[in-house]
Write a protein that binds this DNA or RNA. Sequence first.
DNA 1: TCGATATTTCCAGAATTATGGAAATATCGC
DNA 2: GCGATATTTCCATAATTCTGGAAATATCGA
Lengths: 113, 113
Amino acid sequence: MDADTALATLAALGHETRLTAFRELVQAGTEGLAVGELRERLGAPGATLTAHLNTLRAADLVIDQREGRVIRVRANYAQMNGLIDYLTENCCAGGGNCAPVSSCKPSKRGKKT
Amino acid sequence: MDADTALATLAALGHETRLTAFRELVQAGTEGLAVGELRERLGAPGATLTAHLNTLRAADLVIDQREGRVIRVRANYAQMNGLIDYLTENCCAGGGNCAPVSSCKPSKRGKKT
DNA sequence: TCGATATTTCCAGAATTATGGAAATATCGC
DNA sequence: GCGATATTTCCATAATTCTGGAAATATCGA
């Protein structure tokens, strides 16, 4: 992932509604959610949600698929992995101060930092 | 790391100047950089850089230490690790679609996604 | 104390982003 | 085709963030 893509991805996630929406989609799993279902969960007006979804779409963080009148949205895990990779490189490049092995240990996840 | 902190961290990194600044600091390693040195590298006016540094500071992404008239700024790797952990949890929770082992393999870093 | 250097705060204008109602588009079942 | 449902686009307003000059603050060496 290049810097511009990482930037767009970070900016897309750096908004409360969009981060919450993405988390809902991740929790929903591979099936994803209908836009209407997501709208109900977030309690946002349609136009507002669409605007945020468009930002997430532009950042390639979600994939949608039309199923008749319903548009089903899913989290794009590949892009999230790409972002994590990018940040890991950024975090670890140069000084070797936080090697991937230490930042990715399963046992370390969930700790209070 | 809680959701609010992750949000502030993502928003802080979701700006070109701040992401570039953070990358410079990571590359600079444990010694960090003087604000003036960072300012020269970024080519930004002092007030502008200070505003961005304040955002990074509020997000706990940088640590600074005064050395006489110079303020030395360093990347806070712990916070970056915390963010990566948060995203990894978000990415992997629910569906098990992208386990940390796959997103953090050293061999996978650097791939084009 | 003074003058020089480093950085910040103050502040206001510029630019961008967010919000949501109303109208438009797409698809369905009949 | 028509009415109903799902979602988007359009658009204007509101809110936020960005930017950078000028003044203020902090520290130094003499």
